[in-house]
Amino acid sequence: MEVAIVTCPHCGQTVEAKDPTGGRTGGVRRRLKSEYRATRNTCPECGSEYDIRNP
């Protein structure tokens, strides 16, 4: 599992996130249907959940 640098869609903070896609993300969104979601992460700054989209 890789680590990606992403921007939290809730607070705008740049954070490191677990990325099972190997660095080929399709973006970061607040909520995605499970078929499009690679992983769900929690922002360490604001505590909100966000999803990394499959490429």
Results as ranks from 00 to 15, higher is better:
S48H: 15
G12M: 09
V3Q: 13
T25F: 06
V15E: 00
S48R: 15
E16M: 06
G26W: 10
C43R: 10
P9C: 08
G26Y: 04
I52R: 03
T25K: 10
V15Q: 06
Y50R: 01
L32G: 02
G26Q: 00
L32W: 15
T7Q: 03
E45D: 04
T21L: 04
E2N: 12
R40M: 01
R29N: 10
V15P: 06
T39C: 13
G23I: 13
R30S: 06
V6Y: 06
G12L: 05
T14L: 03
L32N: 11
N54G: 03
V6P: 03
T39M: 12
M1P: 11
C8G: 02
M1I: 14
C11E: 02
I52Y: 01
Y36K: 14
T14M: 09
H10C: 08
C11D: 03
T21K: 08
G12S: 08
T14E: 05
S48K: 15
R53N: 00
D19E: 13
Q13F: 10
R53V: 02
K18S: 09
C43W: 09
E16L: 06
P55Q: 13
V28N: 00
C46L: 01
M1E: 14
I5Y: 14
P44S: 07
E16V: 04
G27N: 10
Q13T: 04
T7M: 08
T39Y: 13
G26D: 01
R29A: 11
Y36S: 03
K33E: 06
V28F: 02
D51W: 11
R24A: 12
M1V: 15
R31P: 01
I52F: 00
T14P: 02
R30T: 03
P55F: 11
C46R: 03
G27M: 11
V3N: 11
Q13K: 05
R29E: 07
I5H: 13
P9L: 00
A17I: 05
P20W: 09
P9Q: 05
D51S: 10
P55W: 13
A4V: 07
T39N: 11
T25W: 07
E2W: 13
